[in-house]
């Protein structure tokens, strides 16, 4: 693996992590992170859409006229979103049900269109695929972290298995909507504390 490939791949995981760094794609991140399973399901579906649409757009980039690029991006992205929607319905109906309207809403996830415009339209196929995978993985990890924290402390379980001692009273607030806002606020503040240099 070349070093530039590695850079394209890890860019979305750490340096430009969509959730914690760029703060985009927040709606699904907060809405479906009530349990680790839902969060990872959403993350993987988004990763699939990101990598596939990045690849196709990069492949077609010389054919796409600049004035028409946004509608064409939208058509490509929504094709893969529809595929992901029906694949999930067929193979993981339980997750599909609990994600609900957020699966088709991947089409308006700013990360997907953002990467198409900012990366795939200007770079070759290989780099675009890696960028899509890396961004998707960064998104999945952030979602998984949120989902795991909310599930462990909010319900005392992880992936549905009890992990906390029976005497632990679940902090119900965390699995309710306000908990999502509070948790992500605290996480980003913690991240700032350790990465931002004192002025």
């Amino acid at each position: 693996m070349k070093s530039s490939d590695w850079k394209d791949f890890t860019n979305g995981i750490v340096r430009e992590n969509p959730i914690f760094r760029l703060l985009i794609g927040l709606c699904p991140a907060l809405a479906v992170s009530t349990s680790a399973v839902d969060a990872l399901g959403m993350g993987l579906a988004t990763t699939f859409v990101l990598a596939a649409s990045n690849g196709v757009i990069s492949l077609l980039r010389t054919l796409i006229p600049p004035d028409l690029r946004i509608p064409i991006f939208i058509v490509v992205v929504s094709t893969f979103v529809t595929a992901a929607d029906y694949l999930m319905l067929a193979f993981f109906p339980a997750i599909h049900r609990s994600l609900g309207v957020f699966v088709p809403l991947i089409v308006v996830n700013c990360i997907v269109l953002g990467r198409a415009e900012a990366f795939a339209y200007r770079n070759e196929v290989r780099a675009s695929l890696l960028d899509g995978l890396g961004m998707g993985l960064g998104f999945s990890l952030a979602l998984g972290l949120l989902g795991a924290l909310r599930e462990v402390f909010g319900a005392g379980t992880l992936f549905g298995l009890a992990v906390m001692p029976a005497s632990y009273p679940p902090l119900l607030l965390l699995v309710l909507p306000p908990g999502a806002f509070l948790l992500i606020g605290l996480l980003i503040a913690g991240l700032n504390r350790f990465t931002r240099r004192a002025p």
Binding site: L23, L173, L176, P177, P178, G179, A180, F181, L182, I184, G185, L186, I188, A189, G190, N192, R193, R196, A198
Partner: peptide, 23 residues
């Protein structure tokens, strides 16, 4: 506001409190 909370983090906390009120 504490330095680390400036900007987005405090906005999230605010949104959380507002959401709590709407609960």
């Amino acid at each position: 506001v504490p330095e680390a909370f400036k900007g987005y983090p405090i906005a999230f906390i605010l949104a959380g409190l507002l959401s709590l009120a709407f609960m």
